[in-house]
Design a protein around this nucleic acid. Structure first.
Length: 597
RNA sequence: CGGGGCGUAGCGCAGCUCGGUAGCGCGCUUCGUUCGGGACGAAGAGGUCGGAGGUUCAAAUCCUCUCGCCCCGACCA
């Protein structure tokens, strides 16, 4: 491609709206532009990167038996009503009516549609197992798009679906997908961390998220360096500390004027926060009854949770325990309505008729805690579970944090941030049952198909690669997904027709050899071209100028390493080819076998 | 949805406090000189100051409403 013809513009200055490096560099390098919050245009260079990534998706999916299909972005609501998600999902789903006033939506994902497709075609165990995938636009009306391409509303996603006759089949395929995902990310230059994850709105029995570690990530992971345990904070567990099981002392009310936080309480009574009980008031939206049209009525359930004062509630754990749709903090009025007092909440003496009382499993073994007294400016000392109150539910309710003991080996956990670049789910039969996707086995018995789902977002992956591969001058693309392999910088001026001729010849020769060349034939100064080359991050840069030409050489610089060398003109193609091969080898050397964590 | 910030030329910004009809740098166009890490000179083009209402002789500037974008939080397959 001749740069003089390329539709692009590099920016010298950082656009004010771009906060994170990948966003800034994607704009500055002319890969994309923003249309509106969470909506982006891809420009030619960005499009080439996207296509290369998606080609890797195809190769790795095909390698594990995947067959590419394509399903529509616009869905009729019917299948979503069948699965129930039409009613479960909130404003994240964009809904509209077609001209016939039928309910329609934009696909956020494609479990329903593919299950519908498969139920039409699959009827026998002989047709299983089956793996289908597609690369398609999805739309999720995120409440808050952010961080450039990391969290957007419209995005392209590769999602694959597996269909097996039983869970054993799924269990056999799942590790293959796991391996394929490592291959994909490594081929893109990212070393992911696979973590156990919450299944969220997808449902199912097991899930892994593939995380690219970066401080700009929006997820927190807990990692054990000793035994390699790692999990998303949403599901991470830890070994709860042992506590001295001192003899219960008698309950005692103490005056604590103005002390309405754990911090202040610990300070006021000169005790560690671990000696206190934290009361948390939430309201959960839970399913109540199902209406005739399949829609589900929900009701608000007041939840009173007690965790030790030095720990944080994990809302995902609470949500899952309650099978709640969503969770919100209770209002002051709601709290007072059950006889509790914000800032001074106590599980003793509250109206239990309308509430669910949950306590973290550390609480029953922690004697003599300080809790609120359900009145302003007062706390109880020596609150003891079992003697003073009992809960409806006792379970792990708290969030693992940096320094907590690994659940497997008790070494201290480390907390890191990451971007979720992909995920895999064992869906099981949630969708096949709901939509009636069944097959007949050898005995003529009907069974629901067992499904798995495997997704990767293209744009988010591109941004994550940039987060990892950049320097103060710009992007450093791995050759596997670089928009071009070679940047041919011509330093020709009107007075040096020989340089122009040489550059033109090289451009032709390199392309003939199968290399993807971006030829900077623009009438710009050397500095501008070099800076743009660094910004664009093409792996190999060739510089053609009078100086080198006089000596019969071309300068080559490797963007990744910064190393430069000279290639004799008569060995140009072979020399560049060798350098490109070395870049490929660098990427491919990262591939290795993984076993499912 | 709560909190904060910002909308003035393609990009980055000043002007607003104290109303008087818009400016700087980069980029862009033309000509000349220059030419191996973001050149120089000269001459230009480009903005209903996010939008609507209001106050005023006069509004980028003051008031009201509204739309959009960014950040923190909530949320997040």
């Amino acid at each position: 491609m001749r740069m003089s013809k390329l539709f692009f513009q590099t920016l010298r200055e950082v656009p004010a709206d771009a906060e994170i490096v990948s966003h800034q560099l994607m704009l500055r390098a002319g890969l994309m532009r923003q249309l509106a919050a969470g909506l982006f245009d891809f420009m030619p260079s960005g499009m080439r990167i996207k296509r290369k990534i998606e080609q890797i998706f195809r190769e790795e999916m095909d390698a594990i038996g995947g067959q590419e299909i394509l399903m529509p972005v616009v869905n009729s609501a019917d299948v979503w009503k069948e699965s129930g998600r039409w009613y479960e999902i909130g404003d994240d789903m964009a809904r509209f009516h077609d001209r016939g006033d039928r309910d329609m939506c934009l696909a956020m994902t494609h479990e329903e549609v593919i299950t519908d497709l498969v139920r039409q075609v699959i009827s026998s165990y002989r047709q299983l197992p089956l793996v289908l995938y597609h690369i398609q636009t999805k739309f999720r009306d995120e409440p808050r798009p952010r961080a450039g391409m990391i969290r957007v509303r419209e995005f392209t996603m590769k999602d694959a679906y597996s269909f097996d006759r039983d869970f054993a089949g799924l269990d056999e395929f799942y590790p293959k997908a796991y391996q394929a995902y490592f291959n994909i990310f490594r081929r893109c230059g990212i070393e992911p961390v696979a973590v156990e994850a919450d299944v969220g709105m997808m449902g199912g029995t097991m899930a892994h998220e593939f995380m690219a570690l970066t401080p700009v990530g929006e997820d927190t992971l807990l990692i054990c360096d000793a035994c390699n345990y790692h999990a998303n904070r949403q599901v991470a567990t830890f070994r709860k500390p042992e506590v001295d099981s001192g003899a219960p002392l008698s309950l005692e009310k103490v005056a604590t004027p103005g002390v309405n936080t754990i911090e202040a309480l610990a300070e006021f009574l000169q005790i560690p926060a671990a000696q206190t009980a934290k009361a948390i008031f939430m309201v959960a939206e839970v399913e109540d009854s199902q209406a005739a049209d399949g829609s589900v009525k929900t009701r608000d359930q007041f939840v009173f949770a007690v965790v030790r004062g030095d720990m944080e509630l994990n809302e995902t754990k609470m949500t899952n325990a309650l099978k709640a749709r969503r969770l919100r903090p209770a209002t002051v009025d709601e709290i007072r309505a059950i006889g509790a007092e914000p800032g001074y909440g106590s599980p003793i003496d509250v109206d239990r008729s309308q509430i669910v009382l949950m306590v973290d499993d550390l609480i029953p073994g922690s004697p003599n805690l300080v809790a609120g007294a359900n009145e302003i400016d007062a706390h109880y000392k020596n609150v003891n579970y079992g003697r003073d109150y009992e809960a409806d539910l006792v379970l792990d309710l708290v969030a693992a944090a940096e320094g907590h003991a690994c659940p497997q080996c008790e070494a201290p956990l480390r907390a890191v941030r990451g971007v979720e670049v992909g995920n895999i789910f064992k869906l099981g039969t949630k969708y096949s049952k709901a939509l009636g996707a069944t097959y007949l086995d050898e005995n003529g018995e009907s069974h629901p198909i067992v499904m798995g789902s495997y997704g990767i977002g293209s744009g988010r992956l591109i941004a994550s690669v940039i987060e990892h591969h950049n320097d103060e001058n710009g992007i450093k693309w791995p050759i596997s997904i670089a928009p071009y392999h070679v940047m041919l910088v011509s330093l020709a001026t009107p007075k040096t027709p020989d340089v122009t001729a040489a550059a033109e010849q090289m451009y032709a020769d390199l392309q003939a050899a199968g290399l993807e060349v971006l030829y900077d034939d623009r009438d710009e100064r050397a500095g501008v071209k070099f800076n743009d080359a660094d910004l664009l991050g093409i792996p190999l840069r060739l510089t053609v100028g009078g100086r080198g030409l006089k000596n019969g050489v071309v300068e080559m610089k490797v963007r990744r390493t910064g190393e430069s060398s000279e290639i004799p003109l008569d060995q140009l193609v072979a020399g560049v080819q060798a350098a490109a091969d070395a870049e490929w080898a660098f990427i491919n050397s990262r591939l290795k076998e993984e076993t499912l964590a």
